[in-house]
Amino acid sequence: MLKIHHLGRSQSERILWLCEELGVAYDLVRYDRDPVTILAPPDLRALHPLGAAPVIEDDGVVLAESAAIVEYVIVRHGGGRLRLGPEHPAYADYLYWFHFANGNLQPVVGRLMMVGRVGLAPEHPVQKAVQGRLDRVTALVEARLSTVPYLAGGEFTAADIMSVFSLTTMRLFQPIDLAPFPGIHAYLRRIGERPAYRRAMAKGDPGFAPMLA
């Protein structure tokens, strides 16, 4: 059976959610962050040279990187569901938004977090550049979600599973004001109504209320 190594309050929530949506059975091994460093504990770091979650084990395969794991699970265990193929009219949209999550959205939130820890003044050129990039990224997401219910278009896909963490749980580490974005707010409310999302969050982070507003 698929084994998911999940670090609490991390992007590995994507994999739990994916499996819940697909109805894929899995064993959950949950880890808590070090209370001082907020990093993964040694037993999780020992699973993979980069020491980060998520990590899965499946019939002798050990795989990291959330996007790679999502594609692997969809193909190996999900019958290809939740991804759009080349024949689908929204195929290009699906590809773009699936990769947008780790190519733009998550990195810019991470950069803002790192810059904030350095303590640069708001008018510092680096601080302004990173904030400006985040503003453009969130504006693009808002524009998209103001016209379609899900990132790939009319149907829920793995592109949504890849993206929601950066708009929700990641805000524990880097607060982002989403008040100016009604399209994103409505989208997150739709996500929060999904039973699979609620199950995944309850299993992966019991007692934690998803940051959907």
Score class of each variant (00 low, 15 high):
V75S: 13
Q127C: 14
V118R: 15
E20W: 04
Q106V: 14
M201T: 05
A196Q: 08
E65S: 07
M211T: 07
L2R: 09
T37P: 08
R189Q: 15
Y187P: 08
D32V: 03
H88Y: 11
E71P: 03
I4A: 05
R76Y: 06
A90R: 15
T138F: 15
R199P: 05
R14A: 02
E193I: 03
A179K: 10
K3E: 09
G103S: 13
A101T: 12
S163M: 14
V109D: 00
I176G: 02
M114S: 11
G154F: 05
N104F: 13
A101M: 11
A67F: 13
A209V: 14
R199G: 01
G132I: 12
P54V: 04
V137S: 02
V75F: 05
V137A: 04
L151G: 10
P195I: 00
M162E: 05
Y94V: 06
Y91M: 02
L151E: 09
P206L: 12
A158Q: 06
R189N: 11
V148T: 11
T37K: 06
G103A: 14
I184G: 11
P210E: 01
V130R: 01
P180T: 08
A92M: 03
A129D: 14
R144V: 06
A101I: 05
Y26Q: 08
L151S: 09
V137D: 03
H99Q: 15
L16H: 04
D27K: 11
R45W: 06
T138W: 15
A52I: 13
L178P: 12
K203R: 07
P41C: 09
F181P: 00
E21T: 08
P195A: 06
L188D: 02
V108L: 07
G110E: 08
E71W: 14
V137E: 06
T168V: 06
E142V: 02
A68M: 14
L212V: 10
T168G: 09
